[in-house]
Amino acid sequence: MSETTHTAHAEHPKDYTGAKLGMWLFLFTEVLLFGGLFILYAIYLQRYPEGFKLGGDQLNVWFGGGNTLVLLTSSLTVAMAITALQQGRVKASLRLVGATLFFALWFLVNKYFEWSAKIHHGIYPKSEHLKEMPGGEQVFFNLYYLMTGLHGIHVLVGAGVMTWVMWLIRKGKVNPDDYVTLENAGLYWHLVDLIWIFLFPLYYLIL
């Protein structure tokens, strides 16, 4: 089906568009992974509006709001890190990725205190106290733990990715001429942020 040309195999330059296309497809899969949980949330909210209201009232909006600020700031720092690297300011970029990592850990510490308080009050899956609550509230809290828990795992993975990228920048493998790995890490981090942007109002604000 072809006429072959007699050029030898040329060394291919790294395919930036391909690398980013792959990352975007991966982000689709993450959205759909959480999508299953958002469907459950929607169905159960429609079925138990009172239970969800009572459950939502017990969540601390200050914890949630604080964490929202932390994550939004971290999205800013990672975006600045990409720009800094593009402009050749390697050290600044390294510091900004470090800041993102710091905010990720801050978020997890906040989450730890928030969950601990709830668990201290006897609200966690399988607990006796939760079993005495009406069905709607039980589903609310079970979903709360599942969705924020899965999101928390993603924050943890994101923190790991940031550490790895810092190592790559320090080694010079990610540099002002080849920064697609940092860009993709940034895309992943924005997604983690974005999912929280949906979780925060659904659990803390609208109920």
Binding site: P125, K126, G135, Q138, V139, L146
Partner: peptide, 14 residues
């Protein structure tokens, strides 16, 4: 494993 019960009718699931 953690008994999250979102499909358990006894705990409001479906």
């Amino acid at each position: 494993v953690i008994g999250s019960g979102v499909f358990d009718p006894a705990r409001g699931g479906d």
